[in-house]
Design a protein around this nucleic acid. Structure first.
Lengths: 244, 244
DNA sequence: TCAAAAGTGTTCGGTTTACACCCATGG
DNA sequence: CCATGGGTGTAAACCGAACACTTTTGA
C-alpha cells in the first residue's frame, strides 16, 4: 500500500526495467501470409527464430523505437520501412518472459505490400520471411505475441480499411480482395466484394487517368489508391467464424 | 542484471525505465458515465486530478499491478475490485510524459456496475467519482489516456459482450440497454435491442426461477446473467457515427 | 385511472448472398 | 478458341429500423 506514495515516487518502489519493442511484421508473398523473423545469435534461445525488436532508447518513444527497429534490424531499406503501416498491439510484461532480466516489451504489428527479401543491412543478415504457420516455436513469449498480432490483423480487416496497407500504392480490387482471402483463408464472392468496397466512402479512390493494368491473364483491371477513410461501417464480416 | 554484450544486447542501449500502470475506471451512476480520479498530493501537478495508478513491482506483471492498484489505491473494497472487468488499453511512452524521469505507463480500462463511493482505504481518501466530461485537465498525459479509454469502451460495446461488465450479477434487459444508451449517448429502440441481445447466443442467460424485479414503476422485468460469449457477431452498431 | 416500463408483433426498406452473364486479354 | 479474371445485373433471403399494441406494475 505504501509502495506508491503520492508525494513523489518512493525510491524503494522504483525498480529498473528494460523496455523493448517487438515487431510482428506481416506481408503477402505469392498468396500466403508471411512473417518477418530473425534468428537469434546468442543465448538464450540461440539459433531459434524470434520477432525482430530491440531496446527503447532513452530519448525516444516506443512508437519511434518500433519505427527505427523496423528499418534497422529488419534489413529493409529505409524508404520501404517508412511506408509500412505500424500500430501498437499490447504490452507483454510477465516477470519471467526473459530469463536474464526484467524486460517489458511493447509489441507492434506492421503490415506492408509484397516486401523484398530483407537485405543484410546491419546485424540482420539472419532475417527472413517465413510463411505464417511454418515457423517452429519462437524464442521467449513470441509465439503468443505473434498469435495475438495475427488475430488482431484478421479482426481489423473486418471493421477498418486496413487491408490497403497490404497493397502497393496503386492496386486493383482483385488484389485487395486477395488480401482478405489470404488473411482470412476463405474465398469471397468477387462481385459482392467489389460492390461493398466501392459503396464504402473513402475506402478506395479510383486513379484518374483511366489506366488499367493486367494481372497476367484476364481483363485489365481499374486501378485504385487507398482512400482517407479509416473505419469500415458497416463492417465486412468474414464468413462463418472460421479462420484459416 | 547488467546487460551483457554476448546476449546480443547492446549495453549502451539498456536504459533503466520506471514502469507504471494507469487505470481508467468507469462506472455508471444515476444515468451518467463516471470516472474514478484521485487528487495529486505532490508536485508536479499538485492538486490536479489524475488517473489512479502506480509502479509495477519487481515480481509482478502489469496485469497484476493493475489489479493490485485497483484494490489498493482506489479505496474500493477488495471484493469489489476483484469483480471488475479489467483490460489493457495501450502503453504510453513519450519521453517527456513525466517531467521527473523516464516513465513508461501501461494503461488499463476497468468497468464495473454502480460502484460505491471510494472509502478512504489508505492514502486514497482523495479518490472520487466524477461524471465523465466534468473533470478539468488531468495531470500528465492522463487526458489522452482517459479519452482513449472512453473511445475504446464505446467501440467495444459494438462488437463484444462487454456491456454486462457494467451490470450487477443479475440484471434486466432494461438495465443492459441503459448501459449502451449512457455510454453512447443515444436512445435505442427497446424492442429491437431486446431481440438483438436475445438472438445472440451466450450474451445473456435467463435466471432460472422466474423471479422478476421491479425497477420502481412499470412491469417487472425478467432477470438475466452474463453469458459466456465474448464476441457479438454481427455487431450492434451505434446509430450514425454520433457520440454523446 | 394514468404513467412508466416490459414484452410481442408487424411492416418496410435496405443489405447481403448467390449466381447468371458479358467483356477483355493472353496463350 | 478457350481459360482467366474483370465487371454488371438480378432475385431471393436476411436483417435492422420504426412503430403499433398489449401487459403489468406503482402512484
Amino acid at each position: 500500500m505504501n509502495a506508491q506514495a503520492p508525494d513523489g515516487y518512493d525510491p524503494c518502489a522504483f525498480t529498473p526495467f528494460a523496455v523493448t519493442v517487438d515487431l510482428a511484421v506481416f506481408t503477402l508473398r505469392d498468396g500466403r501470409l508471411h512473417v518477418l523473423l530473425v534468428r537469434r545469435g546468442a543465448e538464450p534461445y540461440e539459433g531459434a527464430w524470434a520477432l525482430p525488436g530491440g531496446f527503447v532508447l532513452p530519448h525516444e518513444s516506443a512508437d519511434l523505437a518500433a519505427r527505427r527497429e523496423l528499418a534497422e534490424e529488419t534489413g529493409l531499406s529505409g524508404s520501404t520501412a517508412a511506408g509500412l503501416h505500424l500500430e501498437q498491439l499490447r504490452t507483454y510484461s510477465d516477470p519471467d518472459r526473459d530469463p536474464r532480466m526484467r524486460v517489458v516489451s511493447v509489441a507492434y504489428a506492421a503490415l506492408g505490400p509484397g516486401l523484398p527479401e530483407p537485405r543484410g543491412g546491419g546485424d540482420a543478415a539472419h532475417a527472413a520471411w517465413l510463411p505464417y504457420g511454418t515457423q517452429g516455436p519462437l524464442a521467449f513469449d513470441h509465439d503468443a505475441i505473434l498469435a495475438d498480432a495475427r488475430e488482431r490483423v484478421g479482426a481489423k480487416l473486418e471493421y477498418t480499411c486496413l487491408a490497403t496497407a497490404f497493397c502497393p500504392p496503386e492496386f486493383t480490387l482483385g488484389e485487395l480482395r486477395q488480401v482478405y482471402e489470404t488473411v482470412w483463408g476463405v474465398p469471397l464472392d468477387r462481385p459482392n466484394f467489389r460492390r461493398k468496397v466501392l459503396a464504402t466512402p473513402g475506402f478506395v479512390r479510383p486513379v484518374e487517368g483511366p489506366p488499367r493494368r493486367t494481372g497476367g491473364r484476364g481483363k485489365p483491371a481499374a486501378l485504385y489508391r487507398a482512400g482517407d477513410a479509416t473505419a469500415l461501417r458497416p463492417p465486412l464480416l468474414r464468413p462463418e467464424g472460421r479462420e484459416a
